[in-house]
Amino acid sequence: MWTQEIQCRGNESQIRMCPASEKHSCSHDDHQALQCADVMHVRLVNGNSRCAGRVEVLHRGQWGTVCDIFWDMPAAAVVCRELDCGEPVDALGDAHFGPGSGPIWMSILTCSGTESTLKNCGSAGWNAPVCTHNYDAGVICSGE
């Protein structure tokens, strides 16, 4: 149990960045629950179905793309599962579904394939592109 009163403003990237004050009158009756909203969504763009296309992620209210460096079938499996689109058929690069625009949010992904969301995969960090939109990642999933 933390003995601090945490007062987040909403723009902190981690809870430990929130201002906190000592609160010594806590007891187990004072427990609080925390429910997190999914701050990142995934979509497929320019494919011939909702389960095929260029991979785009929503981060901080803006859609951006994923660089194809290290883009592979385990990463594609995570996207297909996240979108309820079955199994991956192909993990494509070189902007197969056309180049995107805006930020390249994710680069150098390292997914094992068991992650529940793409945001749980390792990466070079947010908005740390190592490629251009000519190398946007795409996926074809078995679903429709």
Rank of each mutant, 00 (worst) to 15 (best):
T110P: 00
A20V: 12
C8P: 05
A37L: 14
Q7H: 10
V42T: 15
G98C: 10
L118H: 01
R16F: 14
D68V: 03
S107V: 11
C36L: 15
S107G: 08
G138T: 05
I104G: 09
W126I: 02
V78K: 00
P129R: 01
S116R: 11
H24G: 14
H28T: 07
A124V: 04
P74G: 03
S27T: 15
G47C: 03
D68F: 07
A20D: 06
C51S: 01
V45K: 07
P129S: 06
S49F: 01
V89F: 01
R54A: 04
A128F: 15
D136L: 00
M73L: 13
S123E: 07
S13R: 14
C26Y: 15
C121D: 05
C18W: 14
E87I: 07
Q7R: 15
E5M: 14
V55D: 03
N46R: 03
D68A: 07
G47Y: 01
D84K: 14
V45S: 05
A37W: 15
A128H: 13
T3C: 15
V79L: 08
W105Y: 11
G143P: 05
M40F: 10
G100W: 10
S116V: 14
S21F: 11
G98W: 11
T132K: 08
N11C: 13
G125R: 09
P88T: 14
L34Q: 12
S142Q: 04
D38Y: 12
W105E: 08
P88H: 08
A75Y: 02
M17N: 14
C67G: 06
T114Y: 07
G100N: 09
V55A: 01
G100C: 04
L58H: 04
